[in-house]
Design a protein around this nucleic acid. Sequence first.
DNA 1: CTGTTAGCGCCTTCAA
DNA 2: TTGAAGGCGCTAACAG
Lengths: 341, 341
Amino acid sequence: MKPTVHDIATAAGVSLATVDRVLNRRPGVSVRTREKVDAAIASLGFVRDMAAANLAKGRTYPLVFILPSNDNSFMRLMEAEVRSAMLRSALERTDIRILAVPAFDTAPLVAALDRAAGEKPAGVALVAVDAPEVIAAVDRLADAGIPVVTLVSDLPASRRVHYAGIDNIAAGRTAASLLGRFAGERAGPIAVLAGSMLVRDHRERLDGFRQVMAESYPHLRLLDVVEGRDDPATVEQLLLRLFREHGDVRGIYSLGAGNRGLIKALRQTVFDRRPAVIAHELTETTRLGLIEGLVDAVLNQDAGHEVRSAIRVLKAEADGSHVLAAQERIRIDIFLKDNLP
Amino acid sequence: MKPTVHDIATAAGVSLATVDRVLNRRPGVSVRTREKVDAAIASLGFVRDMAAANLAKGRTYPLVFILPSNDNSFMRLMEAEVRSAMLRSALERTDIRILAVPAFDTAPLVAALDRAAGEKPAGVALVAVDAPEVIAAVDRLADAGIPVVTLVSDLPASRRVHYAGIDNIAAGRTAASLLGRFAGERAGPIAVLAGSMLVRDHRERLDGFRQVMAESYPHLRLLDVVEGRDDPATVEQLLLRLFREHGDVRGIYSLGAGNRGLIKALRQTVFDRRPAVIAHELTETTRLGLIEGLVDAVLNQDAGHEVRSAIRVLKAEADGSHVLAAQERIRIDIFLKDNLP
DNA sequence: CTGTTAGCGCCTTCAA
DNA sequence: TTGAAGGCGCTAACAG
């Protein structure tokens, strides 16, 4: 039979309350007593039943998710996943609030973080913009003892406890490896389309992409990066201009969002040889692109997994327990038209 | 405040015990009373706290995993994952036993299933061999009210409640899509290496692969399938012979195991143009193959995810609750050397 | 500093 | 067919 608090109370010759104090590192226990209890815990191999503990505490976990509010399919998907987690909150003892902020914008994000701090939640998750003010705001939360998880785009210089997202350098490298082979052996230009160099994930993807292109596919020449700010209309205009100037483009790496514009531009243009295209995030748009054969591969991060992972990590952090690292690793999903879910 | 059994007892004007009887569909409640309670449950939107219920019941879930015992890296990995789940069983209220059976062998598998049934577990997971006797044995478990989950290789004709594995047809199609592009535009032969056509996953991968090769890459000609029974030595011999006969092989799809033999054969052979190679399951062998550049892509299924998923499904099934479908979908992971974990 | 007592939400005897 | 009472493992007042 698994030992319980009673067993260790008996073994240590103290009361339940004292055992509980030691278990929860609460003050008011003499060093000697604490040692006795710790010894009993160790020798009996006691592991506390978190379900029972949570039941007794009636604990719930107030959580805040800060998400960009722009018109971006992936972020809308992310929000939908958070809302679906809210539906489960009765079962999972969570109490989730969403704070929407303008995308790529430092000041409102900082304001949201400070507001979140005021609510004294058990944890905060945010899609980070990489700016010193944001790092400072995250660190303020850390100072207040509130664990922070970054979603999608990391902030490694901050004191966030976890990053729930893909390795974007690896994603960029993967994109290059695929595009390099899909584009074939003849020389030619490659277009790179980004959202904004203000967010770390886009910068990292670009870095990874450049590394592998330079190492392994020197016959493919990278054109200047086009920044479309994840906006479909902008993306479309910029690409149409690019296609006019470089009719022989051999490949396109779209490392940000706004892929509706990409697809539109591709549809309107006649190429003598269709360029190989790799985009990010599986949305209705990119899915159709794959099926129609306009897009060759989509690199994806599973928004549902990221949200669930963020919640697990935040809860574990809040009660000082641990998660399974393997379960929290966010994969770089690669979708071709053949393995669409 | 979430309603509890007390609230619905009050609302229905009955005692806690009666509510409990209705909740657990136990006999000894008049129809009228049952209806009153059901009405109260519905109107208050009561959802029972499984953690509390399990605490009260002191419930544990005895689970049996039936795994092939051959010398196959992936299956060893799978076993390691089950063992790691056994370590967590105190926390997860599981009590897991592993039954080892010879691979690709019907009779011992059937015996193991029947033995498992005798232990009256809360659920059984197995790597299925596709044979009528196995289907019958699985159905006997179903008759006994024991939920069964298939791992890695499915048995759709049986009454298993769930399949924790990848879509193998899609995996084969994906392999073809990648290999077709990696192999380039010149015509040439493609080798296909399988383990055994007795297991459904291998057959399905082959089917998917053939479909796409025929549809999209007619200039690549499939050689006769080589069956290596997932044994490295056999695989090596068979491939060396094949390379001797077809020095110009453009691509290789290894859809089973035994990849140590594949790597050895590749190392020993001099090609004028290295064939594109796609294999299954990320193991030490295939990982090295990727890094060395002998293998171009590895399709993988996450053994840890499959095991955790099987456990979640079996537990949920045992207490009539539900799982999140999205969380239980096993992805076809595609690894290049650039996105190795 | 330490112990006693009464729950958390649900289940299970044992009586009625 | 129904209800009262006690307990699962842990926590949280409230006393000493």
